[in-house]
């Protein structure tokens, strides 16, 4: 089911994200490659959405567009009613810092520095005072059960703990949406489930809007809604 946003949804206070007519075409040696073809959907605040699909279907490209890591060929993405591609590069960076939290498959932590410094990095980038950034970071680390690891370096933690640090980092600036790209992909089944449960808790208990790309159909079914991407198009949009 394709979830076409209605015009009023774009400005609705209950909508965290709106994707409108989004297309991405890459030029390659073999010719033009359509990675995304006229994608439309909206995500409500607090909703936990999974994006699934076979390899090369365009799900990661879609996540990159939503995260403003790449610009589309055409179409719009609205986060908290902000048309993110109407912004210049500098404002896009500020928007990413303020409105989006990223969780990567391979954690992407800075291993030479401490867990605390990693977690407060988005705060540091936004110019938050050191004391406020510390306080926020510690509060989140406590909520995620890894406050005792604050002074350790990420390399000394297990995969699950590292991903929790990455989750903590994604939350420190209180973003409008959290984008998770295969957050359990580098973890064993049990740890992956724990991390997934944590994301679910964030969504249901703390009303965080989460969009997660995953290969795992079981995890996808456990989210509020699954969007199946195939050949750059939305094949199914299912409420679970």
């Amino acid at each position: 089911m394709v979830n076409e946003p209605k015009p009023d949804e774009v400005n609705s206070n209950s909508t965290a994200l709106t994707v409108k007519n989004l297309s991405k075409i890459y030029d390659s040696a073999a010719g033009k490659v359509v990675a995304l073809d006229n994608i439309n959907f909206a995500v409500k605040k607090g909703e936990f959405v999974s994006i699934v699909g076979p390899s090369g279907s365009g799900k990661s490209t879609l996540l990159n567009m939503i995260g403003a890591l790449d610009r589309p060929t055409s179409g719009n993405v609205y986060i908290n009613d902000v048309d993110i591609f109407s912004l210049n590069d500098s404002d896009i960076a500020t928007m990413r810092n303020n409105l989006i939290g990223f969780i990567f498959q391979s954690f992407n932590l800075i291993n030479r520095t401490t867990v605390l410094k990693n977690v407060k990095l988005p705060g540091t980038i936004s110019g938050m005072s050191a004391s406020e950034a510390n306080e926020r970071a510690m509060r989140i680390l406590e909520a995620l059960g890894i406050a005792d690891k604050a002074t350790q370096k990420p390399v000394n933690l297990s995969g699950g703990q590292q991903q929790r640090v990455a989750i903590a980092r994604s939350l420190v600036n209180n973003p409008a949406i959290v984008l998770a790209d295969e957050p359990t992909g580098n973890l064993d089944t049990k740890t992956g489930e724990d991390v997934f449960d944590m994301l679910k808790t964030l969504s249901h208990k703390f009303k965080r809007t989460i969009i997660m790309v995953t290969h795992n159909p079981e995890l996808a079914e456990s989210t509020d809604r699954s969007i199946l991407i195939r050949d750059g198009r939305i094949d199914k949009d299912v409420i679970n």
């Binding site: 995260g67 500098s90 939290g101 990223f102 980038i125 936004s126």
Partner: peptide, 14 residues
């Protein structure tokens, strides 16, 4: 390079 990418992804300016 990945660290730079991560920093940019979480909002670091050029």
């Amino acid at each position: 390079i990945r660290e730079i990418g991560t920093m940019k992804a979480i909002g670091a300016q050029n």
